[in-house]
Design a protein around this nucleic acid. Structure first.
Lengths: 233, 233
DNA sequence: CCGGCTCGTAACAATTCGTAATATTCGGGC
DNA sequence: GCCCGAATATTACGAATTGTTACGAGCCGG
């Protein structure tokens, strides 16, 4: 995968070079242009991911350019302008710009806003966490455990909550109160025997020996402790 | 299609109401919250398109909330903050916010920036979209699924809506309320058992094993989750 | 009007999970 | 070691949630 390409269109050399330096330091590829004419010519060759455009250009109406860019190219457009009036910003954004930065600006903020544009349309494809321990592998995305031989044992939502709490706090004492806090969240007034049942069912799925539990150990009068080395991925 | 939903999370009533008024005038649906707790509860029911979040919340660390939002929800996040330092803005954006507005702000600019976000996230309904997942290929233009061997299974409009929702939000929990919101759109008064039936029929067409569904998983008391890696084209 | 299709409703089956009843274990006092 | 009350484990049951199937209303195209 190539580094994202950011184009800089600004007629002031100082600003142009400063932006180029800071963006390249941040790991982006850049292309600089002083005039809209050159910029549009370059568009034929490569499509940038983000376009920084200064509105005060000598050879074109910057806003019109932004409008065309937003319509025709897939790129995100960030306006950089000396005009700080609200009305200017509003019309810039209405014409299709994705962001509007006013001069003077801080280089670090520009980088952050460029990055925000690149995140752009996000599909929150959660990686789906898994944890390995004692021959088991827990897949929290699909609510299932896999033993060493690859046999699958599904677990329910409630069981998964308990399991996650244990796996996130291995070899540490977890009191009943903490569990209720972390899980049920709610009241906690009436019988918390529910928690016992949850743990019992979880132990069954982990094939624990009731007489001699090796993974989920009970500390009489204090709580539970999960033994076993956990590695998340 | 419903108007986009914008949530407003701010503990100052004046600002909250001002934002609500101006955004509703602009044609958006809005939901207001004073506390992060209520806000997160509402997320279970409906997915907003844009979230406005004030960082100075009494009951939570606003930045952590933004981070979670950006990661888990598909919504765009705009931070509204009284802190105007560059460093604040940079960290806000780095943590996943899509924009950062400092107080005092102009209502018109907020509307413009909300609109800019919506342009970004909205995927224009292209005519011939297809999605590949788990050996299947879904052709939404001709309402049919194709299995690995090329056998075709047609699906109906209602089934397609559910399938599309799943494929657009893979590996994410989708609550019943969100489904009704996205699909039936309407009231939601009478029995939503219709949704169960839709899903059942869809599962049948995907040849899911009722005992052990691999693609559409039920989370008791919470909703559904679609497993499987989706790639659109 | 008929036959096929879609899709919501309703009836019934299956699952989840908390409550309550029952059994077992723990720790201290003797 | 033995007994007892308390804490924990297990099991059984039932309410709520979800899955499945059957049925019928609505909608075409003949």
């Amino acid at each position: 995968m190539n580094a994202p390409l950011v184009t800089i269109l600004d007629d002031e050399p100082d600003i142009r070079h400063m932006l180029r330096d800071v963006l390249e330091d941040a790991g982006f590829r850049t292309q600089c242009f002083a005039r809209a004419r050159e910029f549009e010519a370059a568009l034929q060759k490569a499509t940038p991911d983000v376009c920084l455009v200064d509105l005060s250009l000598p050879d074109t109406d910057g806003l019109a350019l932004v409008h065309r860019l937003a319509l025709e190219q897939g790129a995100a457009v960030i306006i950089i302008s000396g005009r700080a009036q609200v009305q200017d910003r509003v019309t810039g954004l209405e014409l299709g710009a994705d962001d509007y930065i006013t001069k003077p600006f801080d280089p670090a903020e520009v980088v952050a806003r460029v990055r925000a544009r690149l995140r752009g349309t996000r599909t929150p494809q959660q990686p789906g966490r898994t944890a390995r321990f004692a021959g088991w592998t827990a897949f929290f995305d699909r609510y299932a455990l896999e033993d060493a031989e690859g046999g699958e044992v599904p677990f329910s939502h409630a069981e998964g909550e308990v399991l996650r709490l244990f796996l996130e706090n291995p070899k540490r004492l977890i009191s009943r109160a903490q569990m209720q806090e972390s899980l049920g969240g709610a009241a906690g007034e009436s019988f918390d025997r529910a928690m016992d049942v949850r743990i019992s069912r979880l132990r069954t799925k982990l094939r624990e020996d009731p007489k001699n539990p090796r993974l989920i150990k009970t500390i009489y009068g204090a709580g539970y402790i999960f033994l076993g080395d956990v590695s998340w991925s």
